[in-house]
């Protein structure tokens, strides 16, 4: 393998990983508050279709991106209402949301299937940075949405670890009862985090329909939402590790095709299962680590909060 091919694989890993990265970052925020939302796939699809429709009608991909985030957020509010206000089972609601999102996006997207988009996100080279050898072509020769995802990671990490809002968020996720007695509104915090999660899942969907393969086709996320859910565990609820993980997961796919062009045959089914194997391995390690150190899932993840139950 010469350098050019390796750079091409890594550059593709970045673009292939970006939709997963957006969705996973959103899910990290959601789960940090103790709410599990398995509807990522559904929210991504609704985001993808709304983004495409808005971009097609307005002719402006940025409007599409905004619409996708709004739509993803709106769908996530269904989950928030059911699981936070009505305290329904989070797993069941999340699964229902995925099924709903898949059907709903197919339904409203019907007239838009298979038509090309005139204005899409195009790669923009960042001056100076894109001239750095190796790093430049891998990280700084993409469309604007990729650059936004870089900034987003820093922003979210700052929010989670360095602000009062992040502290409240983590407190609610670890011990909602304690947070409640400290005067933090559990339900408002959770509503916010679920909404942010939905917006970012919508953004991940829009990346597919506006930048990666600019078109709308039914079920076009093809399981990327589930990879994002797995990635959150892989990343141990940390935005920086999510960056690494999403590029590894994206790179696995890119690598598969490149190996084929070099006449190395690895079963595509094996490559497809690789992200999940990695997740299982990480889960095993994480579970062992939690016994010694304090890492891993937010303690209250998946549990509805009931003030009277204390």
């Amino acid at each position: 393998m010469d350098q050019g091919i390796i750079i091409a694989i890594l550059a593709t890993a970045v673009t292939a990983g970006t939709p997963i990265l957006y969705a996973a970052l959103g899910e990290i925020i959601t789960e940090r508050s103790g709410t599990l939302n398995l509807g990522v796939e559904g929210m991504m699809l609704v985001g993808a279709v709304s983004g495409f429709m808005a971009a097609y009608v307005s002719g402006n991909p940025w409007l599409g991106f905004g619409a996708a985030m709004a739509a993803g957020g709106a769908v996530s509010l269904i989950h928030a209402f059911l699981t936070i206000t009505l305290r329904a089972n989070q797993v069941v609601c999340g699964l229902a949301l995925t099924i709903f999102g898949t059907g709903f996006s197919s339904y409203i997207g019907k007239p838009f299937v298979g038509i090309p988009l005139k204005e899409t996100f195009k790669p923009v080279e960042i001056p100076f940075l894109s001239d750095i050898p190796v790093i430049g072509p891998i990280f700084f020769n993409h469309d604007p949405l990729v650059y936004i995802s870089y900034l987003l990671i820093i922003l979210l990490a700052f929010l989670i670890y360095r602000t009062r809002w992040g502290l409240n968020l983590r407190a609610v996720g670890e011990n909602p009862a304690a947070a409640d007695s400290a005067g933090i509104s559990v339900s408002i915090t959770r509503y916010q985090s679920v909404f942010i999660g939905g917006m970012l899942a919508g953004a991940g969907g829009a990346y597919l329909s506006l930048a990666y393969a600019p078109s709308w086709l039914e079920n076009m996320t093809a399981g990327r939402g589930w990879i994002a859910v797995a990635l959150v565990i892989f990343a141990m609820w940390d935005p920086y590790k999510a960056l690494l993980g999403s590029y590894i997961f994206g790179g696995v796919e890119a690598l598969g095709f490149r190996l084929q062009t070099m006449n190395v045959t690895i079963s595509p089914f094996f490559l497809k299962m690789l992200p999940y194997i990695l997740t299982i391995v990480v889960l095993i390690i994480v579970t062992r680590e939690t016994k010694t150190r304090k890492v891993g899932a937010p303690a209250a993840l998946g549990q509805p909060y009931h003030r009277e139950d204390r």
Partner: peptide, 15 residues
Amino acid sequence: DPAKEKDAAKSLLDA
């Protein structure tokens, strides 16, 4: 899977 098919084509173009 439009994204995957496109990616496969990209790998051929790179080759």
